[in-house]
Design a protein around this nucleic acid. Sequence first.
DNA 1: CTGCGTGCAAAGTATTTGCAGGGTC
DNA 2: GACCCTGCAAATACTTTGCACGCAG
Lengths: 175, 175
Amino acid sequence: MTFAFDKERHRQGKGSEVEIFEAYLRQKGLKLTVPRRQLLELIFDDHSHFTADQLFDRCRERDVRISKATLYRTLAILTDCKLLSAHDFGGEAKYYEHVFGHEHHDHLVCLACRKIVEFQSPDIEKLQDQAAEELGFAPIHHSLAIFGVCAACAETAEGRKVIEEGQAGPTSVSD
Amino acid sequence: MTFAFDKERHRQGKGSEVEIFEAYLRQKGLKLTVPRRQLLELIFDDHSHFTADQLFDRCRERDVRISKATLYRTLAILTDCKLLSAHDFGGEAKYYEHVFGHEHHDHLVCLACRKIVEFQSPDIEKLQDQAAEELGFAPIHHSLAIFGVCAACAETAEGRKVIEEGQAGPTSVSD
DNA sequence: CTGCGTGCAAAGTATTTGCAGGGTC
DNA sequence: GACCCTGCAAATACTTTGCACGCAG
């Protein structure tokens, strides 16, 4: 049987992450251990987008001693039970983000400062589903990232350079 | 100066890849060597989406002896001069695709057979630019991938499993 | 108690880089 | 002839895995 994903509970808001996690672990015969509980708290305390490495650093800051192995293993579980989702914005590493209690959204990524901003567009969603159906695909999920330069960076030399280069060549096409 | 990207020529169609490549190399003070020429031919012969590894295999098939180092270095150049673009569809490796003579498009990725289908939607493009502007971003490029199951795979057990799992959990959430 | 979980270190992947000899312009 | 290129192997960066011991249920 597939994990009984409780959409009702999923809509409730903060705090229930633990419940969902516990339920998931139980039905999988897994255990709620100290490291897992700690990670859960650290993650849902406030990060919305983070890499495995950032999370690891955060552990050290808060004196939570966990190995990277456990960290990765836990991220995998959290992704499986839909508390987190993983994205790849083309940087070095994968980004994880909260899913619980969040509407689906897409991302704007600043190529100058790597800041990530979320946005929603039901219209885009609609068009996507439409496009998928036209081509005979059963859509499951999607990932849309718009890469550009944020307002703040557009003022900087770095930001301007990125924009100018973006006009002609994507990476090191300049000079 | 930014690379004088010749949009006119870029619209002409097959064959001019070599010219664009040559022009780019020349103005960068780089050289048109045998390995580079061979790779260019292999790539534009027909692959539309491929990973570095697939290209490498293809080299061996056709008795083109090139090291992976050179292969990656050449892919970087081709990406810089906009003959190729790189995407990350969440699999293990990056996918490269032809840009030359292709309108911008987005992707449908079959999660069962990994087939990639292209589609275009000017309406979606428009909404994206709009969303970016609303948030103060200067959009440079974007990447939209819809993950789902293609018509053919929807008929198979594997495809159905993926769809069912997609309803509740994304990865190994089953049984 | 049984079996999953943990840390550690070693193994993997995918990609990049240093270096010495070779080829292009 | 100068400088860029190439292959090779070693180096990276991120993530996964094997193993022996420890803790949750």
